[in-house]
Amino acid sequence: MSMTVRGVIARSEGAPVEVTDIVVPDPGPGEARVTVQACGVCHTDLHYREGGISDEFPFLLGHEAAGVVESVGEGVTEVEVGDFVVLNWRAVCGECRACAKGRPQYCFNTHNAVQPMTLTDGTPLSPALGIGAFAEATLVAAGQCTKVNPAADPAVAGLLGCGVMAGFGASVNTGEVGRGDSVAVFGCGGVGDAAIAGAALAGATTIVAVDRDPKKLEWAKSFGATHTVDASAVDAVEAIREATGGFGADVVVEAVGHPEVLKQAFYARDLAGTVVQVGVPTPNMVMPELPMIDFFGRGGALKPSWYGDCLPSRDFPELVDLYLQGRFPLEAFVTERIGIDGVEEAFAKMGTGEVLRSVVEM
């Protein structure tokens, strides 16, 4: 039968979030109900609250989550009751043209649970990224559950559900950083620092972190940056060239989501280098103006990165294992652990740059 649990909702644009009772139905065919143990507070949740993604209020917020499968619906084979899982927002279909080409990380037909979660008066909720995990339990498509080693701390493992995976994958999957490469990362929040950590793990020897916040530059060094650039004080492009022998970086990751930063990233790469954009722009932003001869003459690649071009079934277990082996500092992204009633305050801390990630523990 359905269960009533506490959850965090955004009832209207810009209004403070509320903790209220929500109704989570029994899983139907292809669905799973998950007892949420921990969920990170991501910028995307704030974008939902501010109406920056859609106007389908009320939203059930939260999506960077880990927990235990409580029940499953008919036909579910991916997971079983009792499995420890990280939730993902790209449940691949296995049938679309991307999947048919053997590139399921680009699946064009990802899916979510069909049944809605609701308020107690029956009002349907729109779950953030199809997950809605600032709640004691949530309903998702079974394919959104990725089984990982249960030895992992849920507050740490859940961060793979969005920001850390996006940044790590931007370097390793999209940018294809390899041994001896030089890398520059614009924006040293959670996503940018994950890109730095991924580049370090992949064997990059020069990693240049660019930001305007001294505290974030210090964080970047702890994740593997070999050089830091305060973009408020110096020309970031020239500083990156200086750090790379005058050439520019082999791979430049734009983790801000701003046209002018993307333009800087373009000019900060070496000839035939790669620019990866993983920072999420707002809908009104347009590509920066570039002389076509510069685009043509520099060669290389300009690549957007969808969710770090990850395949959760492949990447989540591997990264959890690397974390448990002490080879990937996943725990370092957790700045604070809070209760379910602390989300609004966590949004404020996010805005002032005080935290990499606040994590709600249920």
Rank of each mutant, 00 (worst) to 15 (best):
P283Y: 05
T138A: 06
G175V: 10
D121N: 15
R337Q: 07
V177N: 06
G203Y: 06
V229Y: 00
A142K: 11
C188Y: 02
S71R: 13
V237P: 01
S358P: 02
D193Y: 01
L217W: 00
K215N: 08
N149C: 09
V19C: 07
T274G: 04
F186N: 05
Y307L: 07
I207P: 02
P288G: 07
A155C: 12
M350N: 07
T110F: 04
G7T: 13
P58E: 07
P312T: 13
G203N: 08
G40T: 08
P124I: 12
P116D: 11
Y323H: 15
V320G: 10
P127C: 04
V320K: 14
Q115P: 03
E13H: 13
V261C: 01
D315S: 03
R49C: 05
G7K: 13
E78Q: 14
D211M: 02
N284P: 00
S12R: 15
L160Y: 10
A128M: 04
V19D: 01
S126H: 15
E78I: 13
D55C: 04
E331P: 02
F316D: 01
T123A: 11
V280C: 02
V276S: 04
A32I: 04
D181I: 08
P259Y: 03
T4A: 11
A220E: 02
T282G: 12
D83S: 11
D309N: 14
V343F: 04
C188I: 10
F328P: 07
L217I: 08
T44Q: 04
E64H: 12
V86K: 14
W306H: 10
F84E: 02
G180D: 04
G122Y: 09
V24T: 06
K303N: 02
I196M: 06
P214E: 01
R6W: 00
I338L: 05
E95Y: 11
A141T: 09
V359R: 09
S71K: 11
C107G: 10
E218I: 09
T35V: 11
G175Y: 03
D270F: 05
I240H: 05
A200R: 15
C107T: 09
A128S: 14
M3G: 07
